[in-house]
Amino acid sequence: MTKTIAKTVLSLNLNGVVRDDVIPDNLLLVDYLREKASLTGTKIGCDGGECGACTVLIDGRPRHACLTLAATCQDSEIETIDGLSRDSRLTALQRGFNEKLGAQCGFCTPGMIMASEALLRRIPNPSETDIRDALAANICRCTGYVKIIEAVQFAAQALTEGEPAA
């Protein structure tokens, strides 16, 4: 007899596209994104909420995709690094990380950018303390964070000067 695995029909909005998937209840959101939806921008850096590399936005708020069961995201709006740019044009944050050298090996960058994205939507003109506070749950082993803070400041400046967010 075949063993039955508990499953959920998951319906959500992923980077602006409505999807329906049948998924096992024990599937983590990060694995749903990477394996089911083939969006590999979101990274897995640790085994439990310590590094922030898997940060995505769920209904506009930053959350660890590696500590979220996909089946708890029913009817949610999920945004990942893969969906930020539009028409091949980088967002202000992506340009900031590029031009200010906020990314070195790049592994933490998707999480850094999504956490920064949540910050800039909440506080369009953040102080350095605001930036440090908002990125406190994201670890980078390369940059020493100074360049990351400059990248976010670059993006905030570009956005306040009228550049569209995406």
């Binding site: 922030g52 940060t55 930053p62 506070d133 406190a136 749950a137 994201n138």
Partner: peptide, 9 residues
């Protein structure tokens, strides 16, 4: 408690 992303949920 923990970091800002943890406190969100």
């Amino acid at each position: 408690v923990a970091g800002p992303s943890h406190r969100e949920y």
